[in-house]
């Protein structure tokens, strides 16, 4: 059978191979994305416009993303989405390549704060642009309008004894130490110096004593807020929690503290292994258009970089997340604080 095939059907095989070769000639863009960033209709619109075919691979954790891009010299994908904090190691490793802004006409339609690299630490290095902001969310304060005369101005409200037992905070070592650093007036909440740890821990123990409890999930936070009559919440999930609470009938407001709200920013990045950089840039430019931007905010509740965010002013201060100085230490100390250790025991070796 094999012999027959090879002798008699060889011409057909050659023809088939030639045809499939023609099919391969269609450009394929390999996208490594997060849920909601490359919906089928968004992809189809791009395919219709460029004639290229898009292969989307979804990831749901930073670890998976890193694993996929750190193998095979990043040649398996052309373009990917990553937050600014994580981005740094991709630049370090050479996975990300510099982008020519001129290739992205839609950049001009972005909000000013996303067009100025100076306000976006991490998207540039050595004067070169490596990442194009795409989706973001900030962590503001949600407050009960009936218990507040005026919106809280500062994160200090979380420590305010008037709201003792009525405060909800997200259960996160990294973020909560950043909060403590902001309370301590640090220039960067992501850089705690050796002398800062003891006062930061002290702040966080005080915070623990002032709040009702820590939450993990948005739904859980909304349930606790309503059922326990909370007054104030540090909203790790931002406006998503605001929407949940309003849906539950809570009379709540949303405020960006003057210290600045921690915010994450996901950007699109072109890989070193991109087969066709122009096509990868066309994909990024496509996503900056009005259609995909609308999908992002209307369908997935995330902020896009074109339209002003509904619950804040352009002048509100955002603190884009950066890698912290020592994530293990923050987590270890946080676990002790969370478990109820007091004072010196938290900082014990």
């Amino acid at each position: 059978m094999l012999r027959r095939l090879s002798l008699h059907r060889l011409p057909w095989l050659v023809l088939a191979l030639a045809l499939s070769g023609t099919a391969c000639a269609t450009e394929v863009l390999r996208v490594l994305s997060w849920p909601g960033y490359a919906d089928a209709d968004v992809v189809q619109a791009f395919e219709a416009r460029t004639g290229a075919r898009v292969e989307v691979t979804q990831v749901d954790s930073d670890e998976t993303l890193w694993q996929k891009l750190s193998t095979n010299d990043a040649t398996d994908y052309d373009v990917f989405a990553v937050n600014t904090a994580e981005l740094q190691r991709y630049i370090d490793r050479g996975v990300a390549v510099a982008i020519d802004p001129a290739a992205l006409p839609n950049l001009g339609a972005q909000l000013p704060r996303f067009r100025n690299p100076a306000t976006l630490p991490g998207t540039t290095r050595d004067g070169k642009l490596y990442a194009i902001p795409y989706a973001w969310a900030e962590m503001g304060l949600i407050y009960d309008r009936r218990q507040f005369d005026a919106p809280p101005q500062s994160i200090a409200a979380l420590w305010d004894a008037r709201y003792r037992g009525k405060v909800l905070v997200y259960n996160s070592g990294s973020h909560n130490f950043s909060l403590a650093a902001q309370m301590l007036g640090k220039a960067s909440p992501f850089r705690l110096d050796a002398a800062d740890w003891a006062p930061a821990v002290e702040r966080l123990v005080e915070l623990r004593r002032n709040l009702l409890t820590f939450y993990a999930q948005p739904e859980e936070s909304a349930h606790l807020f309503v059922s326990r009559g909370a007054a104030l919440m540090y909203a790790n999930y931002g406006t998503q929690q605001l929407q949940l609470l309003r849906a539950a009938g809570a009379d709540v407001g949303y405020a960006i503290p003057r210290e600045g709200a921690l915010a994450w920013l996901d950007c699109w990045v072109v890989t070193r292994g991109a087969r066709n950089q122009a096509l990868a840039l066309a994909w990024i430019d496509h996503l900056l258009g009005t259609g995909p931007a609308h999908v992002l905010s209307a369908r997935h509740g995330l902020d896009n970089t074109r339209d002003p965010a509904p619950h804040q002013a352009e002048t509100d201060r955002l603190v884009w997340l950066e890698p912290v100085e020592d994530v293990e230490r923050r987590n270890l100390l946080w676990e002790r604080i969370l478990s109820g250790d007091r004072g010196a025991r938290v900082l014990a070796p």
């Binding site: 037992g165 623990r208 004593r209 009702l212 409890t213 326990r228 109820g340 250790d341 007091r342």
Partner: peptide, 11 residues
């Protein structure tokens, strides 16, 4: 001994 007031089984 630890402070457990922020755990639901206490409050």
């Amino acid at each position: 001994l630890q402070e457990k007031g922020h755990y639901p089984y206490v409050f």
